[in-house]
Design a protein around this nucleic acid. Structure first.
Length: 205
DNA sequence: CGAGCGATTCGC
DNA sequence: CGAATCGCTCGG
């Protein structure tokens, strides 16, 4: 018998899987997985449709380049399986999944979700009723799920506040250059943005 | 200690 | 296309 969606959302990606190769993990396990939050006693969740990989050792677009340990980047150096959440432009938060073994600063930015649970709460938090405008952007999805750098940076993603539930299959995907990183010199055109082929829940064409 | 700026979003 | 808006980073 197949699992129902509420059952699926209570599962967790196995902690050891976060130490797999970041690209394999992103494409095979994180695309189509469910990002879930239970903040203020309300469950909200979305299927991950779009993400970007950032590599601290070599990638000039990564905050931790070149393996730079600062107050802000410290969580990226932790063992894979926790959240790296940062605050930008004075008003937006962005959620990343920390991957790789402790000491490597690699992270995967979640750029877009397809809402699957808590949609009414998302509409309230976003002050917007359009299903396609709730979670299609890294700042938007943090607002919809109630995620902030102040409260959730470093949070364990196997817990009950903020977590990841496994996907049910591998999805076909497209790869493109990442968005908003023109300053990243020879790394700005790396095709490290991945999104589910055919999904309408994408931040930008 | 303060200038400069950002993995964005929204409204004009 | 420019404003919003503030914590982080780095230079002096």
């Amino acid at each position: 018998m197949n699992k129902t969606l509420p059952d699926i959302l209570q599962c967790r990606i196995p902690p050891e899987n976060y130490c797999r190769d970041p690209f394999a993990f992103a494409k095979e396990e994180l695309l189509g997985a469910y990002l879930c939050s239970n903040i203020g006693g309300i469950l909200t969740a979305g299927k991950i449709t779009e993400l970007e990989v950032y590599i601290g050792s070599c990638d000039k677009a990564c905050h931790a380049y070149p393996n730079k340990l600062t107050k802000r980047t410290a969580t990226m150096f932790r063992k894979g399986g926790c959240a790296y959440v940062f605050f930008v432009y004075g008003m937006y938060n962005q959620f990343n999944v920390v991957v790789s073994p402790e000491g490597e600063a690699n992270a995967i930015l979640i750029r877009s979700l397809e809402p699957v649970a808590g949609i009414e709460e998302m509409k309230k938090r976003r002050k917007n009723d359009d299903l396609h405008n709730l979670t299609t952007g890294p700042g938007k999805l943090c607002q919809a799920l109630g995620i902030t750098a102040k409260d959730h940076d470093g949070t364990d993603l196997s817990g009950r506040l903020l977590w990841l539930a496994p996907n049910d299959k591998k999805y076909e995907f497209e790869a493109t250059a990442r968005i908003g990183i023109d300053y990243a010199k020879d790394y700005k055109d790396k095709p490290w943005r991945f999104y589910i082929k055919g999904s309408s829940f994408i931040s930008r064409k």
